[in-house]
Lab assay of single mutants.
Amino acid sequence: MQRGKVKWFNNEKGYGFIEVEGGSDVFVHFTAIQGEGFKTLEEGQEVSFEIVQGNRGPQAANVVKL
């Protein structure tokens, strides 16, 4: 599992990016966020996640808020 901080997340569009220290930013879609109810992330929030290869490159999967 990787760890990072949410760079930004757009609730209306349902996606954003996670900053990884020493690495490239990783795309995150709301469907990758674990948990119940409305799935969103806050700027600066710490998360753990896996990186998978999506249609447009690397993206976050199994995102857990820390």
Rank of each mutant, 00 (worst) to 15 (best):
I18D: 00
E36Y: 08
L41A: 05
S24C: 10
Q2P: 03
H29Q: 04
N11C: 08
V28M: 04
K39F: 03
Q2A: 12
K5I: 09
F27P: 04
G4M: 00
V64K: 10
A61H: 12
L41M: 12
G16M: 00
E43M: 14
F17E: 04
F27A: 03
I18L: 14
H29K: 03
G54F: 05
G14C: 05
Q34H: 05
F30Y: 14
K13E: 04
G22H: 05
G57C: 04
D25Y: 03
V26K: 03
E19V: 13
G44H: 14
T40V: 09
E50L: 11
T40Y: 09
A32K: 08
G35V: 09
N10M: 06
G4L: 00
G4Y: 01
Q53S: 10
K65H: 14
M1F: 10
E43Q: 15
K65W: 04
I33H: 02
R3M: 14
V6S: 02
F9Y: 05
T40A: 11
E21S: 12
M1R: 06
E12G: 11
F30P: 03
E19M: 13
I18T: 01
Y15V: 04
V26H: 04
Y15W: 14
G37E: 08
V28H: 00
E46M: 13
V47Q: 00
D25K: 06
F30V: 08
D25C: 06
F17A: 04
F49L: 12
G22N: 15
F27H: 06
F9I: 03
E36T: 12
V6P: 01
K5W: 08
A61L: 07
E50S: 10
Q34G: 12
T40F: 12
G57T: 06
F49K: 00
E42F: 08
I33L: 06
F9L: 02
G35R: 05
E50P: 00
Y15M: 04
N11M: 09
F49A: 03
S24G: 12
V6G: 02
V20Q: 15
K5Y: 07
G57Q: 05
E42Y: 09
V6Q: 01
A60H: 01
L41G: 02
K13R: 12
G22S: 14
Q34D: 15
E46I: 07
V20D: 08
K13V: 08
K5M: 07
N55R: 06
E36P: 11
V20T: 13
G22P: 15
G23W: 07
K7L: 07
H29D: 03
E36N: 09
F27R: 04
E12H: 14
M1P: 06
R3D: 10
Q45S: 10
R3H: 09
Y15F: 08
R3G: 12
